[in-house]
C-alpha cells in the first residue's frame, strides 16, 4: 500500500489510485508493464509504488476483464506483454472518474472549511 505520511503522522492513502491510474495510462496508449511503471512515476513523483505491485495489479485487472494483453515485438528489444483497455475497463475508468469527482468536491469542501476556520483564528499552534 502506498501511504504518504506527513511530518506529524497523518497518513494519506493513495493505493486506491493505482487501478484508475493504470486504466488511464492504458487508455491513453496501449503499453507494456515496463513502460507503465516508468510512466506511473511521471504522474505522481511523490507516490512510491513497487514494480511488483504494478505487475500484480495488471495481472489482476486482466483476470477481471478490465484490460487484455497480447505479445508485442519491438524492433530492437524482446517481445513484451502489451495491455489495452477493454469496454469493461473503460466503464470502470468512467466510474472511477465519477467517484474521484465526488471525492474532489469533498476535499475542496474540507479545505475551504479548514481555511475559513484558520482565517477566523480558530487554530493556534502551541
Amino acid at each position: 500500500m502506498a501511504t504518504n505520511k506527513t511530518k506529524n503522522g497523518t497518513g494519506i492513502t493513495l493505493d486506491k489510485m493505482i487501478q484508475p491510474t493504470l486504466l488511464l495510462l492504458i487508455y491513453q496508449k496501449p503499453a507494456h508493464g515496463y513502460e507503465l511503471i516508468q510512466n506511473f512515476k511521471a504522474m505522481d513523483p511523490t507516490e512510491v509504488v513497487e514494480p511488483g505491485t504494478i505487475y500484480r495489479y495488471l495481472r489482476r485487472m486482466e483476470s477481471e476483464g478490465f484490460i487484455k494483453s497480447k505479445w508485442e515485438t519491438s524492433e530492437a528489444g524482446p517481445a513484451r506483454r502489451q495491455y489495452e483497455i477493454t469496454m469493461l475497463g473503460f466503464k470502470a475508468l468512467k466510474e472511477a472518474v465519477i467517484k474521484l469527482e465526488h471525492q474532489k468536491r469533498q476535499i475542496e469542501d474540507f479545505l475551504i472549511t479548514f481555511k475559513e476556520m484558520e482565517e477566523r483564528g480558530n487554530f493556534s499552534e502551541n
Binding site: 515496463y34 514494480p51 511488483g52 505487475y55 505479445w71 515485438t73 530492437a76 528489444g77 524482446p78 517481445a79 513484451r80 506483454r81
Partner: peptide
C-alpha cells in the same frame, strides 16, 4: 540479443522480473 538473435532465435518473450 547478444548471442542468439537473429541466427538461432527470432525473438524472445519477457515473462518475469
Amino acid at each position: 540479443n547478444d548471442i542468439l538473435i537473429p541466427k538461432f532465435v527470432d525473438t524472445s518473450f519477457v515473462f518475469a522480473t
